[in-house]
Amino acid sequence: METNYIIYKSVLVLAVFGITLFIAMYSTYAERKIAAFLQDRLGPNRAGPFGILQPLADGVKMFMKEEIIPDVSNKFLFLLGPSLAMLTCLMTGAVIPWGSSVAIAGQSYSLQVADVNIGILYLLGVTSVGVYGIMIGGWASNNKYALLGALRASSQMISYEIGMGLSIIALLMSTGTLSIGEIAAQQHGGHWNVLYQPLGFLIFIICAFAETNRAPFDLPECESELVGGYHTEYSSMKLGFYLFAEYINMFISSAIIATLYFGGYNMPFIGRFVHDPNMLVLLGTAFLFIKIAFFIFLFMWVRWTLPRFRYDQLMNLGWKGLIPLAIANIGITGIVMWWLGKI
C-alpha cells in the first residue's frame, strides 16, 4: 500500500510537471500563430509541418546562445533569479484538481496531487513568493533598467494580489471551503461559480492578467521605456527560463480560473451520454483542458488587441478601481447570502 501510494503520487507529479512544461512550450507557438492570425500574417511555418517544431527550434537556439553573466553582478543571486521564477510557477500545479478520482482495481486514485484544506491560501502564498524571482534577478543584474523593471513588477504584483485575495474571499463565502478540490466538486451539474460570482470573476481575471505580467499590464518589460525590463542582462537559457515562466504562469492561472469559476473538470449533461465512471473522469479532465485552452487563448487575444497601460493608470485601476469593487462584492455577497437565508 505504502509503496503503491508513493508510486502513484510520483507518477502524478511527473505527469503534471511534464504536461505543464509541454503546454507552456506549445503556448509559445500558439501565441505566435495567434498573433500572426490577428495581424493577418502566416506566423512560424518553417520548422516541420505548419511550423509545429518551432518551440523545439527555439529551445535549441536558447541553449546554444552564448551565456553572459555581467562581471559586476552577484553571480549566485543572478542565477537564483530565474531558478526561483521557474520554481514558484511550477509549485502551484500541486493543488489543482486535474480531475476527480479514477477507480483502478478497487482503489480510488484522485487526480489531484495534494488536496490540502488550505489550497487557496497555498496558491496566494506561492504567488506572493513568486515576486522574489523577478526582484532578485532584477537587482542582481546591477543594471538600472533591470532594477526599475523589477520594482515595477513587484509593486504591480503586490498591488494586484490584494484585489485577487479580496475577490477570492467573496468566492469563499459562497463556497464555504478553502480546499480547491472541494470547490471543484461543488460545481457539479452546471452550478458554476461564475454564475454566482460574476463580478468576482471579472476582478479575478483582471488581477490574473496583472499577476502574470501579461499585456495590457506588461509594464515590467515595457520595451519603449525600460529596454527589456528585469531580464535586460539575461541571455541564453536563463532568459529562456524567465520567458518560459511567464507561459507556465499563464497556463496555471488559466487552470485556476477554470477550476474556481468555470466548473473545473465538470461538464453539465455529460452524465447522460457516458456511463462508465472512469471514462467520465477522463472526459472531465479533457473538458478541463479545453477550458484551460480557451483561457490561454483569451490571454493571447487580449495581448494582441489591447494597448499597454500607463503605469499610473495601472496603479489607479488596481487601488481605486478593483479593490473597492472587490470589497463591495464581499458586502453584496454577504447581503445576498443573508437574504437567501444561507447564513
Binding site: 484544506n117 488550505i118 491560501l121 502564498g125 504567488t127 513568493v129 503586490i158
Partner: peptide, 14 residues
Amino acid sequence: QFLFAVQIMVYAGA
C-alpha cells in the same frame, strides 16, 4: 496550517 500560509503570505511574501 493557517498560520503557515499567513506567515508565508504576509511576512515572507509582502
